[in-house]
């Protein structure tokens, strides 16, 4: 991870090592408190994917691929989609699609409002891995300079 030739300079790498955990933690906070405060699955998912993109920009592509590679991102995206559909389809057993069948709980608490936190977690998986995969694919394309054939 500390190859001095790849990525940016030493200052950027040190600051990245200090802050990237905090960014990931903030994304998880935004996702898990989406039903009692501003935030939710979309914004939290984009923040989680930004933390991995931060590693990729500072340390080069190889360091980020040690943590998350393309196969794992694809797996998590499919997992998020299947989780979302499955939770929605369980409601069919006692009524209709997207039925919120759990107990509502007490308002203003973290464990309340039935299935909505689970939907938030599924959407955050999907958005985070999908956007990370798009950025990986855009970064990996090598464009040859004008005039030289590949």
């Amino acid at each position: 991870m500390d190859d001095p030739k790849k990525g940016m300079t030493l200052i950027v790498k040190t600051i990245t090592r200090l802050t990237v955990g905090l960014i990931l933690l903030f994304g998880i906070y935004i996702v898990s408190h989406g039903h009692v405060s501003p935030g939710g699955g979309f914004a939290g998912g984009v923040i989680i994917s930004l933390s991995f993109i931060h590693i990729m920009l500072a340390f080069g592509e190889e360091a980020a691929f040690k943590k998350v590679n393309q196969g794992i991102a694809s797996l998590f995206e499919s997992f998020g989609a299947i989780l979302f559909i499955t939770i929605a389809a369980i409601g069919m057993g006692s009524g209709y699609f997207f039925l919120n069948f759990l107990r509502k709980g007490e308002p203003f608490k973290l464990f309340s409002s039935g299935l909505i936190p689970l939907y938030n977690i599924a959407i955050s998986f999907k958005v985070a891995s999908g956007l990370f995969m798009i950025v990986i694919l855009l970064m990996l394309l090598k464009i040859p300079k004008k005039g030289e054939k590949q």
């Binding site: 939710g40 909505i116 939907y119």
Partner: peptide
């Protein structure tokens, strides 16, 4: 819905087909 954030309750409960 039991959610205090009304935007989340509209996105994920009343109009969840949009999210799908």
């Amino acid at each position: 819905t039991g959610a205090t954030n009304l935007v989340t309750s509209v996105v994920l409960d009343y109009r969840a087909y949009d999210t799908l």
